[in-house]
């Protein structure tokens, strides 16, 4: 028996950073959530279009592996479908629910293989040939100073403790409020506020000279 050679799909490494898609209106998201609860499969496509990138990015951030991130995205959306009856819009948004699921399952996967979480935003990618996050190029920007500042801040995220960095990343990646972050992370609201403040203090300290010059 001659086995067909296993080939790697080039799409697996097809990773680019794009502008975040404009968020659908609240009414449209409510309709999607209602359709999901009603068991309409078509709702899944709309939800994926809205949040697939977010779920994938969070998965990638935790797992640092496009293949495993894809696997996790599939698991999360399948779990969303199979547990759709348990989604309660009064307890949180669909986005928060998805963030909670992907985070929880990613942590389970990491615990299972005892790997330490790696930040997807690290400037030094794990495999050396795949930047986990695109760093803006000042030479091609309309506002080079702003790009330099963005580069500096993104670089500085790596100095934050894991809990503060995760909080900041989820806050800006998902656009979650502090209350929503409290639910997703499973920590008190005051702890979220404290983490954000401490993270900003560390970023200010780290970037102090740079920001003084810029200002």
């Amino acid at each position: 028996m001659s086995e067909v050679d296993v080939v790697r799909s080039s799409s697996m490494a097809d990773e680019h950073v794009i502008e975040q898609a404009p968020q659908s209106g609240t009414g449209e998201l409510d309709a999607l959530a209602a359709a999901l609860r009603d068991g309409q499969p078509s709702a899944v496509e709309g939800i994926y279009d809205e949040y697939g990138g977010l779920v994938y990015t969070i998965a990638l951030r935790f797992l640092d592996s496009p293949e495993r991130a894809e696997e996790l995205v599939q698991e999360v959306f399948l779990a969303m479908w199979e547990r759709r009856a348990s989604f309660d819009p009064m307890r949180g948004t669909l986005k928060s629910w998805l963030c909670t699921m992907v985070r929880s399952r990613a942590l389970d996967m990491l615990r299972a293989d005892r790997r330490r979480p790696r930040p997807a935003y690290s400037l030094d990618s794990a495999d050396g040939d795949r930047p986990a996050m695109e760093i803006p190029d000042p030479s091609r920007a309309s506002d080079p100073a702003a790009v330099v500042e963005t580069r500096a801040v993104l670089s500085a995220l790596d100095i934050l403790p894991d809990d503060q960095r995760e909080t900041i990343e989820l806050m800006y990646l998902a656009g979650l409020s502090h209350s929503e972050l409290s639910g997703v992370l499973g920590i008190p609201l005051g702890t979220v506020k404290g983490r954000v403040r401490l993270a900003f203090a560390k970023l200010r300290q780290h970037l102090g000279i740079h920001l003084e010059v810029e200002s």
Binding site: V17, M133, T150
Partner: peptide, 26 residues
């Protein structure tokens, strides 16, 4: 710092084929 984070922390688009696989699994 807020402006820089808002500008720099972005969603990474998943591979195009992933959507079909997600919908197929459903």
């Amino acid at each position: 710092i807020h402006d820089a984070l808002k500008e720099g922390v972005r969603v990474v688009p998943p591979p195009a084929a992933l959507k079909s696989r997600v919908l197929s699994s459903i």
